[in-house]
Design a protein around this nucleic acid. Structure first.
Lengths: 225, 225
DNA sequence: GAGAGACTGTGACCGGAGTTACAGCCAAAG
DNA sequence: CTTTGGCTGTAACTCCGGTCACAGTCTCTC
């Protein structure tokens, strides 16, 4: 198995090398380009995906066409498993944020693993529990925090996953438009723009297209909670 | 095993009678009264609970003391499993809404089951996936719906779980104060009261203390989405 | 059955954030 | 190079819903 990124995915965490290699063989590769969608809300589909490179956004659309992003997923992260454990149509749409490489695993290939490798079951339960915790926190933020607070929090989350330290600050190439960032925090594009402009005016960060450089992470953290 | 309610809990769904009976033996009973709390956010604790009678609310408190309810749980429902699969302090506070009977299962007693009974693992994955789906929907509602819409939706949910059909409508004894209902939908008590008063004025429902009678469920459904 | 405390019902006020409306800007396409 | 379309930056206007402030009602205790 030639892929470190894949090996770090929670799905593989309980497997020895042999089992991992054999699981890898039963997966297939997919690649999609920025803006293309992998599956849509309402689709049938029983595969699970692991990102090997690039970023994917998971979103839902309201009856009147507005969109809300549930998550931005990067390398090693898994998605699409809900329709697998809780059979039913896909509950969100998966779209490439930039060019993306994925590995996909079918329902049929995964189920036997659960019996043979209890550690896989445990890893998946762990994964879902962690996601549920995180989502509960998002609910709390929507209820308690104002938009600038949620923007700050989203930036910190993106920074922790995609940020790279440099002399002039933490470079976060999130690849998201402000529109997408707004959908991620559940606010309008304009309001998010003003929050960012404000943070920038205070010297907490520098704005760049589809990217920010965080210069004062402590202030940002304080604004977030 | 003398308890049908327990037998319907997802935790037991993959077990034969013997296995269920033996699992039951390793659980202990707990009972608490209205207002008492079972565990609090931040506590250590590695047990999982199943409600056998009554209702429990799961809530989180913001730094400045405001509260948000994640769920109202009734008979056969399970909670507290997050700290079990994703070790860490409890992420919510569990409080009795009325007098409650519970069965509790420790970490140590559950883990071996996962290996021995793959169906249990599958049932739990199913359960968590369903919860995650539901929670994602709550996020969508917070972003897209106004307060009356969320109130309508909450009432419909409570009705589907605790409602009883009668000649004059669906009686929903939710046992929640309007304050608690407000915390459940993420709004202020006053705004929720006004939404309820409005629904009542339109003849969609009748208000009773800690309870409502839904008279026009279709209108309510239309208002909800 | 009187008083206290909790819950419900309503109004006045005000601020945060959505909506609308443009004006730059940049990158890709021709 | 120019044009076009997508993205970013700002301002004016409006309104939903939170806060504050009471009044009315119900229930439980003494």
């Amino acid at each position: 198995m030639d892929n470190d990124v894949l090996r770090q995915a929670p799905l593989f965490s309980g497997l020895n090398d042999d089992a991992a290699a054999s699981l890898d063989l039963s997966m297939t590769s997919v690649s999609i380009r920025r803006g293309e969608t992998l599956f849509s809300e309402g689709d049938e589909g029983r595969e699970l995906f692991v990102v090997t490179s690039g970023k994917v956004k998971l979103g839902r659309t309201s009856p009147d066409g507005r969109e809300n992003l549930l998550a931005i997923l990067g390398p090693s992260q898994m998605f699409g498993e809900l329709s697998l454990f809780d059979p039913g149509p896909r509950s969100a749409t998966a779209t490439a944020v930039n060019d993306v490489e994925l590995r996909s695993l079918s329902h049929e290939a995964l189920l036997p693993l659960l019996g043979d490798h209890p550690d896989v079951a445990r890893a998946l339960l762990h994964q879902l529990a962690a996601r549920l915790r995180r989502t509960n926190e998002v609910v709390g933020d929507l209820v308690f925090s104002d938009v600038p607070g949620r923007v700050a929090k989203a930036l910190l989350d993106l920074a922790s996953r995609f940020g790279r330290k440099a002399d002039d600050g933490i470079h976060v190439n999130h690849d998201l438009t402000q529109e997408e960032l707004a959908q991620l925090v559940g606010a309008s594009r304009e309001t998010v723009n003003k929050a960012l402009a404000d943070f920038s005016a205070r010297g907490w960060l520098r704005l760049e297209p589809r990217s920010v450089v965080i210069m004062d992470i402590d202030r940002l953290k304080r604004r977030a909670r």
